[in-house]
Simulated scan of single mutants.
Amino acid sequence: MRDELVARLVQRNETLRALGCQLYEVGTNSEQPDTVFVVEIWDSAEAHSASLRDPHVAAAIAEARHLLNGHFGGFRFEVSGSPLRDG
């Protein structure tokens, strides 16, 4: 079901940008074929938390929930900068 999940996650969604999402990248890795990797950068932790209460985001999560196994990894960090942009 990995490919179905990826297809859902990469559907265009301008709501995320309006809610403060700066980056949302989805990828896979042949060494972990059952894993979908997502990198998100938000204006703030508060913006991310608020996005989860948005009706459109909540509906998208609900539609994809049956494709998830319930195991979520990852970590949080504060972005210090990037060589690809100013500031």
Rank of each mutant, 00 (worst) to 15 (best):
47 A>L: 02
45 A>K: 02
70 G>V: 01
27 G>Y: 14
49 S>Y: 09
30 S>F: 15
73 G>Y: 09
26 V>W: 14
17 R>V: 00
5 L>A: 00
42 W>N: 00
6 V>Y: 04
56 H>T: 12
4 E>L: 15
25 E>T: 15
37 F>S: 02
59 A>G: 13
72 F>W: 05
37 F>G: 02
32 Q>Y: 08
73 G>W: 11
39 V>F: 15
22 Q>D: 09
4 E>T: 12
53 R>I: 12
67 L>C: 09
48 H>M: 07
44 S>V: 06
20 G>T: 05
62 A>V: 08
49 S>A: 11
8 R>T: 01
22 Q>E: 10
45 A>S: 07
51 S>C: 12
10 V>D: 07
74 G>L: 02
7 A>M: 10
45 A>Q: 09
68 L>Q: 13
23 L>K: 11
23 L>A: 02
38 V>H: 10
41 I>H: 06
86 D>R: 04
73 G>V: 12
34 D>F: 11
53 R>T: 11
14 E>V: 01
26 V>R: 02
9 L>N: 09
85 R>P: 01
63 E>Y: 13
31 E>N: 15
66 H>M: 13
58 A>R: 04
78 E>S: 14
82 S>L: 04
12 R>S: 05
15 T>D: 04
47 A>W: 02
41 I>F: 03
51 S>E: 03
6 V>T: 06
69 N>W: 00
87 G>Y: 03
71 H>Y: 04
44 S>A: 07
30 S>R: 12
53 R>M: 13
79 V>Q: 08
37 F>D: 01
33 P>L: 11
81 G>D: 07
66 H>L: 12
10 V>S: 04
86 D>I: 08
77 F>I: 13
12 R>V: 06
40 E>W: 13
61 I>H: 13
56 H>A: 14
46 E>V: 03
83 P>I: 14
8 R>M: 07
56 H>R: 15
52 L>M: 05
82 S>H: 02
72 F>Q: 00
69 N>Y: 02
8 R>V: 01
9 L>E: 05
57 V>A: 06
37 F>C: 04
31 E>F: 11
81 G>V: 15
37 F>W: 06
46 E>M: 11
23 L>R: 11
53 R>Q: 14
76 R>K: 12
60 A>K: 10
58 A>V: 02
62 A>R: 12
52 L>E: 01
6 V>G: 01
59 A>Y: 00
1 M>S: 13
51 S>A: 15
69 N>V: 03
44 S>T: 14
70 G>Y: 03
19 L>F: 05
40 E>S: 04
27 G>V: 14
22 Q>N: 10
11 Q>N: 14
33 P>K: 11
17 R>M: 04
80 S>F: 13
69 N>H: 04
30 S>E: 10
30 S>G: 12
87 G>W: 03
34 D>T: 15
60 A>L: 09
7 A>H: 08
1 M>P: 05
24 Y>R: 03
31 E>Y: 12
39 V>A: 08
57 V>M: 12
39 V>N: 10
57 V>C: 00
45 A>E: 06
64 A>M: 13
50 A>L: 06
76 R>T: 10
51 S>W: 06
60 A>H: 07
2 R>T: 07
32 Q>R: 05
31 E>D: 12
76 R>S: 08
13 N>G: 00
5 L>W: 01
32 Q>F: 07
49 S>T: 08
16 L>S: 05
56 H>Q: 11
83 P>S: 10
78 E>N: 09
74 G>N: 03
1 M>Y: 09
36 V>Q: 02
81 G>R: 12
46 E>G: 13
43 D>Q: 15
